[in-house]
Design a binder for these strands. Structure first.
Length: 111
DNA sequence: AGATTGACTAACC
DNA sequence: AGGTTAGCCAATC
């Protein structure tokens, strides 16, 4: 791994899109991808997992397509994901009983 | 240049 | 309801 690599064009687009997500809202890997014309949600996740600016860029506001929590800092569970959840809750994001996020909190980039 | 790797997803079984 | 598969695509071997 190369932590001090300059951001690629693709990563820059992803990070720029992150800034559009309002506080207290989330979006999904797929929706963010759609916004920057990338059909691979996986590639979005790849960009976020090596986010060099965390937590300056709000990568915690990106969750899975089914509005469950998704991953954080390269992990799909455990401590990092707990922190992601608490971050979102502290911003006012509402979690339902089944662990998913209130759909009205899903930002859709002015569709 | 080719293969592998994912913080994914929709569509199947 | 859970697993497998196929499609996706940038970064990284």
């Amino acid at each position: 791994m190369d932590p001090e690599r300059p951001p690629t064009e693709f990563e820059r687009k992803v990070f720029d899109a992150l800034q559009l997500i309002p506080r207290g809202m989330v979006t999904t890997y797929g929706l963010l991808g759609h916004h920057i014309s990338c059909r691979s949600a996986q590639a979005i996740g790849q960009a976020l997992r090596r986010n060099p600016f965390a937590p300056d860029t709000p990568c915690h506001r990106v969750v899975k397509g089914d509005l469950t929590i998704g991953g954080f800092f390269g992990q799909n569970g455990g401590e990092p994901v707990d922190r992601k959840r608490r971050l979102l809750e502290s911003e006012g994001v509402l979690f339902l009983e089944d662990g998913s996020i209130d759909p009205t909190r899903c930002y859709r980039f002015d569709e």
